[in-house]
């Protein structure tokens, strides 16, 4: 019995959100959240890789020997990340320079491996693609919210355009520093887990 596409969507966006419920995959992207544009580029890349690697793993699930599945999944993921990297280098060279090693680090993003392992190995192909895309989207929403706050208070801009009112006021240097990403993510998890989603298990 497989979940319906709607259930998958709801789970990935809210009830099982990769970031604030599962705390997966924050490594590679939290670092670029002081800028909305870079965050968008990174998270779209993650969404692309999660979707397509889920699709591929699901297609090959009968063929992959169980014992070496981790390595096979890693190689599939690495292949898609190389594609993302090449697309970025060709069409968005400036962004590719800023993002630097973080694009390559999508390979070790736990969400991608997690979805391949937990969903794609036991679900039909199209549903796996849908699951990958939606969990990538759930991931994107959270990080973009963090990025909007950091960019607005840290630099007074949104998508690199000055925002009236925020641009003139004194900048919050802490928002541009790494520590603020930890605080904001912690606060977001606190609010969402405390107010909206109560966990039943411990």
């Amino acid at each position: 019995m497989h979940d319906s596409p709607l259930t998958v969507l709801k789970n990935n966006l809210w009830y099982q959100n990769p970031i604030f419920i599962q705390i997966l995959g924050i490594c590679s992207t939290l670092a670029v959240t002081n800028n909305v544009k870079n965050t968008l580029i990174m998270t779209v890349g993650v969404m692309f890789v999660t979707g397509l690697s889920n699709l591929t793993v699901s297609l090959l699930k009968e063929l992959i020997p169980f014992k070496v599945r981790m390595i096979v999944q890693t190689l599939i993921i690495a292949t898609y990340v190389i594609i993302v990297d090449m697309i970025l280098k060709a069409y968005f060279p400036a962004a590719s320079k800023v993002l630097g090693p973080y694009v390559g680090l999508i390979i070790t993003n736990c969400i991608i491996m997690g979805r391949a392992e937990a969903f794609a190995l036991s679900n039909p192909v199209i549903l796996s693609l849908w699951d990958g895309l939606t969990s990538g989207f759930g991931y994107m929403i959270v990080l973009v919210v963090i990025a909007i706050v950091r960019e607005l208070f840290g630099f007074g801009t949104f998508l690199d355009l000055p925002v009236p009112g925020f641009y003139q006021m004194e900048k919050w240097t802490i928002m541009a520093m790494p520590a603020s990403a930890f605080f904001l993510l912690g606060a977001m998890i606190w609010i969402i887990r405390g107010k909206f989603i109560r966990e039943d298990k411990s």
């Binding site: 705390i23 802490i174 520093m177 790494p178 520590a179 603020s180 990403a181 930890f182 605080f183 993510l185 912690g186 606060a187 998890i189 606190w190 609010i191 969402i192 887990r193 405390g194 107010k195 109560r198």
Partner: peptide
């Protein structure tokens, strides 16, 4: 700790303070 704060949320706050100290 209150609901929601225990677990990952407080861990992230602790990491945040540590990051601040290391700056």
């Amino acid at each position: 700790l209150g609901p929601g704060l225990a677990g990952p949320a407080i861990t992230l706050f602790l990491i945040g303070f540590m990051a601040l100290a290391f700056t």
